[in-house]
């Protein structure tokens, strides 16, 4: 114990020395999906790459291969004087809460989970709010009033997406029917476009004409199948409107890139603060993407309804239930 305390003290002295030298060394640790997952991790990378482009500051990153490497990667970066260190993904929660106390002068950031420590800032997104708007848009754009949802892996986070979507759809038209499918129960469910396409086709066969996906790489198959059938899809995480212009109604973007970029900026300016940072509709942390690819699809009626719903959620007039709060969804 004394050993490790001494060690931590020595390391923090080193880290402090680094800070005096005014050398800014940011780092990112990705989750198992890796840097190029076309979704969440890649979005974090995009933010960091933009920071590098704007400021010329190099960053280091690491793609873990198994759970044991989470702590290893964090303490390595911390020991080498990197700060802030952004851990992308809720799975890093345990590792961050273990490593952060050992390096009290290093700034740690965790995305998608909450770690309550004096040198950690937690960034979480209100995916249910963005998905609510997607549900509103989907039902209004639907002629059959039947809409679909294709999730990736069946975990709480994705049920949070689904639950927000259903609430938005039901609030717009109580008689609307929503078909929900999860692609699978393993990590492979994030990268199975063929199965994603099949699920979308089966939902369309039951009458759905708008399908929202929250399925990473699997979603590419969903959007493809929907576009092939001449129906509408809704993208997720990144702006996917340009994948099939005219067939992607909108995208529920989750601005991990902005969060990473801002974190680096604040840390560089010495304005980084620990604590919880929630990115919802009000903070533009989640939003529906509008651009020239989907402007023909978003009628004035839909645009007005989205704007009204957005205002309602921000003002608190509309309460969107968060699946994570009690592991249940009030509507199906």
């Amino acid at each position: 114990m004394i050993r490790s305390t001494l060690f931590a003290a020595a390391v923090s002295a080193l880290a402090a020395g680094g800070a005096f030298a005014a050398e800014f060394k940011p780092a990112i640790v990705y989750d198992l999906g890796g840097r190029n997952d076309k979704s969440f991790n890649e979005s974090a990378y995009t933010g960091a790459a933009k920071f590098k482009e704007d400021t010329g500051v190099e960053f280091r990153d690491f793609e873990i291969q198994n759970d044991s490497q989470r702590e290893q990667a964090l303490s390595r970066f911390a020991r080498q004087g990197f700060s802030p260190i952004i851990s992308v993904g809720f799975s890093h929660e345990g590792a961050v809460s273990k490593v952060a106390p050992q390096f009290p002068d290093t700034q740690f950031v965790i995305v998608d989970s909450v770690v309550d420590l004096p040198n950690v800032s937690s960034i979480v997104f209100k995916e249910h709010e963005g998905s609510y708007l997607a549900g509103v848009a989907a039902v209004l754009a639907s002629e059959t009033k039947k809409v679909g949802f294709v999730g990736g892996m069946d975990i709480a986070l994705i049920r949070k997406f689904a639950c927000g979507y259903v609430q938005g759809a039901k609030a717009t038209d109580p008689k609307a029917e929503i078909f929900q499918n999860m692609t699978g129960t393993t990590g492979a469910a994030w990268a199975d476009p063929v199965r994603g396409g099949e699920l979308a086709k089966s939902q369309m066969a039951r009458g759905a004409d708008v399908v929202y996906h929250a399925a990473g790489g699997t979603g590419e198959g969903v959007l493809q199948a929907v576009a092939d059938a001449g129906k509408l899809g809704i993208g997720v995480d990144k702006n996917q409107n340009d994948l099939h212009p005219g067939h992607v109604l909108t995208s529920m973007v989750k601005r991990v890139d902005t969060a990473v970029y801002d974190t680096f900026k604040q840390a560089q300016a010495g304005e980084w603060r620990p604590g919880l940072k929630v990115f919802g509709l009000a903070e533009d942390g989640v939003a529906l993407a509008m651009d020239e690819n989907n402007q023909a699809l978003i009628t004035e009626e839909i645009a007005a309804a989205i704007a009204a719903a957005r205002e309602g959620v921000i003002s608190g007039e509309i309460q969107v239930h968060d699946y994570m709060s009690d592991s249940a969804c009030p509507v199906q």
Partner: peptide, 14 residues
């Protein structure tokens, strides 16, 4: 791990 053994609310990871 998602439905039965998960400690429930607040824990995102299965």
């Amino acid at each position: 791990l998602v439905d039965v053994l998960n400690p429930g609310a607040g824990s995102m990871s299965p």
